[in-house]
Design a protein around this nucleic acid. Structure first.
Lengths: 216, 216
DNA sequence: GAGGGAATACCCACTAATGGGTATGGTGGT
DNA sequence: ACCACCATACCCATTAGTGGGTATTCCCTC
């Protein structure tokens, strides 16, 4: 946490030109010292394990192992290297995946070099750093996540509710039909309707949702 | 989206002193016009429905209906009011809940008044705004979410355990295949095997069983 | 070192189950 | 009379589950 001693840095990126650019940028100021460069995920893992750098700059899109896989392995080692993802992707999914896997930062290559440096220092001091736009992406993706998880059972009719219960017991349409004394095809119609109302795609999703709601 | 006309603002907070402070702060500049104040969630809902304000400042911790409940109701109405949560809580859970429920911002009462104003304007222009520290909290809570995954179902191999987990998330064989990078015929084989080992008759039963075990 | 057994992954072919569409009737309530 | 709910029927495409077979790898044992 002392900003006095330069932080050791490992750069993992399969684009040599980019590695060189980072190296130049980062060593101009005295804040970081690049102790290693890797041109692939596999090589990066070796170096990370050998060098225990304070920080690792990790490209997301690489040939061979992609950045998320590399990140997971590094985090599973429990070194205390901070790992910042650096990528051209502004896909919400990639961002969420990276954070779930334990990334300490997620920055875009298209950033201004000065900003990049600022963000790196933030990450070095233990902060999680995202760009403004990514923060928005994140919030947005959370909401998308939330939609299918927030079905409103209020919209279901009694019969649909009963059938949902039976689905949540793992029963097939045929069994449900027998239990309710109605035709097999009728059950299918009700299932179709309740899936629509709950905004779900299959009886398995319905079962999972119902069980989680029942218990959670 | 025009920053020319002042945005109408509704403040919902059960602390009168705080409402007054916001009112003063916000009306000093010409950016917002407070068109209503509510001292409870219930009253806030009435006013929101009647006034259709451009923005709603909503306290999270209130007697009676809490802020999240109020937020959900407002968002279910599909007015196009932007809602910014304002709270003393820096609990990650509250933050995530607010974003999932559709909050357009989440700010802390302990912020500097000037910063608050800046953030409000950001939110007014359609951005999602979080403070720096909250961004970190968010990232952290995502990681916590990621942890609870425990295979090791008795008798199941690793792969079978992984696939059972995915079934318990409601996924189809095709999706599972893509996620694991294997053919979907192979997934079927694993499903067949795990159903046998667990003495179950369908993936729905498997999903129910896994979810119940996970939670109960 | 040769077998045997698990685990993984793939293939083919076949049946059952599921989900979507459309359509027809019969209720009961407003 | 209209509307929501329920029940049924039929058709169609996709998905899921079963059975058989082949292959490779790794590990254990004789």
């Amino acid at each position: 946490m002392s900003p006095d001693t330069p932080q050791t840095l490992l750069v993992i990126d399969d684009h040599p030109l980019f590695r060189k650019a980072v190296l130049q940028l980062v060593e101009m100021t005295g804040d970081f010292q690049v102790v290693g460069e890797a041109s692939s995920g596999e090589q990066g893992l070796e170096l990370a394990q050998g060098l225990h750098p304070d920080m690792i700059l990790l490209d997301l899109n690489m040939k061979g192992m992609n950045g998320i896989e590399v990140l997971k392995v590094i985090k599973s080692w429990d070194l205390d290297s901070r790992v910042v993802m650096l990528t051209v992707s502004d896909e919400a999914g990639d961002l969420v995946a990276a954070l779930r896997a334990g990334a300490d930062g997620y920055l875009l290559k298209e950033m201004e070099p000065e900003d990049l440096l600022v963000k790196l220092k933030e990450a070095a001091s233990g902060q999680v750093t995202l760009t403004e736009r990514l923060t928005r992406l994140l919030a947005h993706s959370l909401r998308e996540d939330a939609l299918p998880k927030a079905p409103d059972q209020a919209g279901l009719t009694e019969q649909e509710g009963r059938i949902l219960d039976l689905i949540a017991q793992g029963k097939s349409n045929k069994l449900i039909a027998r239990e309710l004394g109605i035709a097999d095809g009728t059950v299918k119609v009700h299932v179709k309707h309740l899936l629509r109302k709950l905004n779900l795609r299959s009886r398995v999703e319905a079962a999972v949702w119902a069980v989680e709601k029942r218990q959670g």
